[in-house]
């Protein structure tokens, strides 16, 4: 299995994937997008923080473990850090596998385990705290 794991402070751009092998029957893409509410309250966006060297290792460990249960050919994982405004993706996953069941199960489990073990944190910012477009209210 091939894996691509990255953290970026820039808006996520879907990476070039190249052509799939002839045994690939499923390609699944997931974008996790920042919603306009958090716990019922309106927000302007989320400020993400990660312990990147450890997060990369944890994601690699999670992917390797899941691959024994739902073998896949290629997994792309990109997580944005820093300020992410409402409506923009904070997480991108692409999975190629022979069959759709593997890709769907793999993606769900990867996100579930990410949320319990990967050292990544988010903090919501309220709309009234926005002073300049595109700038995190948590920067000051």
């Amino acid at each position: 299995m091939e894996t691509y794991i990255a953290f970026t402070s820039e808006p996520i751009v879907s990476p070039a994937a190249g052509s799939a092998g002839r045994e690939i029957g499923a390609e699944l893409e997931f974008h996790g997008i920042v919603r306009e509410t958090e716990h019922g309250a309106a927000i302007a966006g989320l400020q993400y923080e990660a312990y990147v060297p450890m997060a990369e290792r944890e994601i690699a460990r999670i992917i390797a473990g899941l691959n024994t249960q739902w073998p896949c050919e290629t997994v792309w994982f990109i997580h944005r850090i820093g300020w992410v405004p409402v409506g923009e993706p904070s997480l991108y996953i692409r999975i190629r596998s022979s069959h759709r069941q593997q890709a769907f199960h793999f993606c769900m489990a990867l996100i579930d385990q990410l949320k319990t073990d990967a050292p990544i944190w988010k903090r919501a910012a309220l709309p009234e705290n926005i002073s300049q477009p595109g700038r995190s209210p948590l920067d000051s």
């Binding site: 904070s90 996100i111 949320k115 050292p119 988010k122």
Partner: peptide, 10 residues
Amino acid sequence: LAVIPPVSGG
């Protein structure tokens, strides 16, 4: 050594 609070990625 890192001190890790409850995580909330995704």
